[in-house]
């Protein structure tokens, strides 16, 4: 089957844009529309676009880790964000914030870390599922 040239070329421009947009969604997520879950989905669809336009095995090479590990690490990060407050003798998952807002990133606290974990988890799980399907063909 002959591959279309439009898709690879478009992907080359779309993928970085989508990845940046996913980070943007992740960071504005706490009080506005967005968040780790949506951000993760956008990032995962960018990766899937790459897999479709080249090949699933190219995506395998692109990933630093097995998607299973990515998912597990995301979960661990989210879980760890809940533990932070326990070091300060507050109940599990109490929100802790850095007082002064950071440049670009804005206000950072444990919910941001939680969202980051969700982001990584979603990327890992979606890529895991889709690669599993792609292998069958």
């Amino acid at each position: 089957m002959q591959r279309s040239i439009i898709l690879p070329v478009a992907t080359r421009f779309l993928m970085p844009l989508m990845l940046v947009f996913s980070i943007f969604l992740l960071l504005r997520g706490h009080n506005e529309v967005g968040g780790g879950f949506v951000g993760g989905l956008v990032a995962a669809s960018a990766l899937m676009l790459y897999a479709i336009s080249t090949s699933p095995s190219a995506l395998w090479r692109l990933l630093p880790l097995d998607p299973r590990f990515i998912a597990a690490i995301g979960l661990l990060i989210s879980l760890f964000s809940g533990f932070i407050s326990m070091f300060y003798e507050k109940p599990f998952m109490t929100n802790m914030w850095i007082e002064a807002p950071l440049p670009v990133l804005g206000k950072i606290g444990t919910p941001t870390l939680f969202d980051l974990g969700v982001y990584i988890l979603v990327v890992g799980v979606v890529v895991w599922i889709l690669l599993e399907f792609a292998e069958d063909e």
């Binding site: 299973r68 979960l75 661990l76």
Partner: peptide
């Protein structure tokens, strides 16, 4: 909270050692 957290943490670690 620990009865919930212990299996959760171990579930995730078990995934790492798939």
């Amino acid at each position: 909270i620990y009865p919930i957290l212990i299996p959760l943490v171990f579930a995730i670690i078990t995934v790492l050692f798939w």
